[in-house]
Write a protein that binds this DNA or RNA. Sequence first.
DNA 1: GCATAAATGGAAATGCTTTCCATTTATGCT
DNA 2: AGCATAAATGGAAAGCATTTCCATTTATGC
Lengths: 147, 147
Amino acid sequence: MQRYIRMLREGKFKITPRREAILAYFMKEGKYATPEQVWKKLRISLGRLGLPTVYRNMEEMHQLGILVKVEGAENRFYYGLCRAEDPQVHHHHIICQGCRKVQEVEGCLVGSLSKQIEAKTGFKLTGHTIYLQGLCQSCITVDGGGL
Amino acid sequence: MQRYIRMLREGKFKITPRREAILAYFMKEGKYATPEQVWKKLRISLGRLGLPTVYRNMEEMHQLGILVKVEGAENRFYYGLCRAEDPQVHHHHIICQGCRKVQEVEGCLVGSLSKQIEAKTGFKLTGHTIYLQGLCQSCITVDGGGL
DNA sequence: GCATAAATGGAAATGCTTTCCATTTATGCT
DNA sequence: AGCATAAATGGAAAGCATTTCCATTTATGC
């Protein structure tokens, strides 16, 4: 938790109860979620909580590298906590199709291949985004997906 | 063009002037575009053209593998023509940040790494999506991006 | 040609996300 | 501790990409 608080501070953001609650939510759940899902849950304990506040804060946390943002089903966006030691160090995430758990994949998948890609296509690579889907160990043993 | 027409037929879709116009648009432009962009252009030559028609057809073509669908800026979706010999054969696309040109990258970038990823994470891979961004040769020589 | 299911256009609805703005609050300074 | 101030927040309303509805038109097989 403290490291995420620190990241907020470094981004010149204030530490508010709402932000702490959002962080706590993701620390506890460990899976990806939409702003609305977070809002529905936190609204109960926080009393008053605006949906725009959740959207704003989650997007800010995404900008800071605290949350990963992925395009889920039905053109909606999901966010998940990035637990990488240093989020600045380029890496990827894999998402469990069973329980929506988010996990880091150290190292860059494209880095080692970039030369080949550039040779093949004639392009100069400037960036990439990878969405890995899979099943985490506990979901493999259960039934193989669904949620 | 004929191969895309064939793909539409195989998908039990009728060959309409609108569909042909959309295909022609992408054949000519070769870059990715939103339904609205396509609509604005084709509306002129087609006289009457409904925006929902463009959305519907582009999404259908995406389902058939004719168009690639990528999430662009500002939560909008862009489509680009897939020119791979056989779109069913798994491959990736790279998009030029300069001119939005879409190009195929043969082979799968994750295939050769999947064992490593699975070993590292404990996940069983079920799928992946890769968005490669780069600059095509002509854009490299011009200025380095922008559009 | 003709029948028919598919395609289309325009208007309206949907629904995620953002903006506006008045009020509240975290933070730095004294 | 109290204060000033810029940032954060909530609620309502707006924005806007995308989809749905439905009456009309059209491609296609016979």
